[in-house]
Computed example of a mutant assay.
Amino acid sequence: MTGHEAAQGATSRPVTLLDVFDQHYRDVHGYLARRVDAHTAEDLASETSRRPTPRPASGSGGPRRGPRPTRR
Rank of each mutant, 00 (worst) to 15 (best):
Ser46Val: 12
Tyr25Gln: 10
Tyr25Asn: 05
His24Lys: 04
Gly59Asn: 14
His39Phe: 02
Pro63Met: 03
Gln23Ser: 08
Val36Tyr: 07
Arg26Val: 03
Val20His: 01
Thr2Ile: 00
Asp22Met: 04
Thr16Trp: 11
His29Tyr: 14
Glu5Leu: 08
Ala6Cys: 01
Ala33Tyr: 03
Ser12Phe: 14
Arg50Ser: 09
Gly30Tyr: 07
Arg64Gly: 14
Pro54Gln: 08
Asp43Lys: 12
Ser46Met: 07
Glu47Gly: 06
His29Pro: 00
Arg55His: 13
His4Tyr: 15
Gly62Pro: 11
Arg71Phe: 11
Val36Pro: 05
Pro54Cys: 11
Val15Asp: 04
Ala10Val: 00
Arg71Ala: 06
Arg71Thr: 06
Arg35Cys: 12
Arg51Trp: 11
Tyr25Met: 04
Arg64Leu: 13
His4Ser: 01
Gln8Ile: 07
Leu32Glu: 01
Thr53Glu: 10
Asp22Ser: 09
Arg13Asn: 02
Ala38Gln: 14
Ser12Ile: 00
Tyr25Leu: 10
Pro67Cys: 01
Ala41Asp: 08
Pro52His: 13
Glu42Val: 06
Arg51Gly: 00
Asp22His: 06
Val20Tyr: 02
Thr11Asp: 02
Pro69Glu: 01
Gly61Tyr: 14
Thr48Gly: 04
Ala57Asp: 10
Ala6Met: 08
Arg71Glu: 00
Val15Leu: 09
Met1Ser: 15
Arg65His: 03
Arg50Cys: 08
Asp19Ile: 05
Arg26Ile: 05
Thr16Ala: 08
Ala7Arg: 11
Glu47Cys: 06
Arg72Glu: 07
Thr48Gln: 06
Arg68Lys: 11
Tyr25Arg: 15
His29Ala: 04
Ala57Trp: 14
Gly30Glu: 13
Asp27Trp: 10
Arg34Phe: 03
Glu42Leu: 09
Ala57Gly: 12
Asp19Glu: 02
Arg35Gln: 15
Leu44Gly: 02
Val15Trp: 04
Glu42Met: 12
Glu47Trp: 05
Arg55Trp: 08
Arg34Gly: 13
Leu18Gln: 13
Glu42Ser: 10
Glu5Asp: 15
Leu17Glu: 04
Ala45Pro: 05
Gln23Ala: 15
Glu47Ser: 05
Val15Met: 02
Arg35Lys: 14
Arg68Thr: 09
Ala33Arg: 08
Pro67Glu: 02
Thr53Asp: 03
Asp43Arg: 12
Ser60Ala: 15
Gly59Cys: 08
Gly62Cys: 13
Ser49Lys: 10
Arg55Asn: 08
Val28Pro: 01
Gln23Gly: 09
Val15Ser: 02
Ser58Ala: 12
Asp37Pro: 06
Val36Met: 05
Pro52Ile: 12
Val28Ala: 13
Pro14Trp: 00
Tyr31Glu: 11
Ser12Val: 00
Leu32Asn: 05
Gln8Glu: 13
Thr53Val: 11
Pro69Lys: 03
Asp22Glu: 15
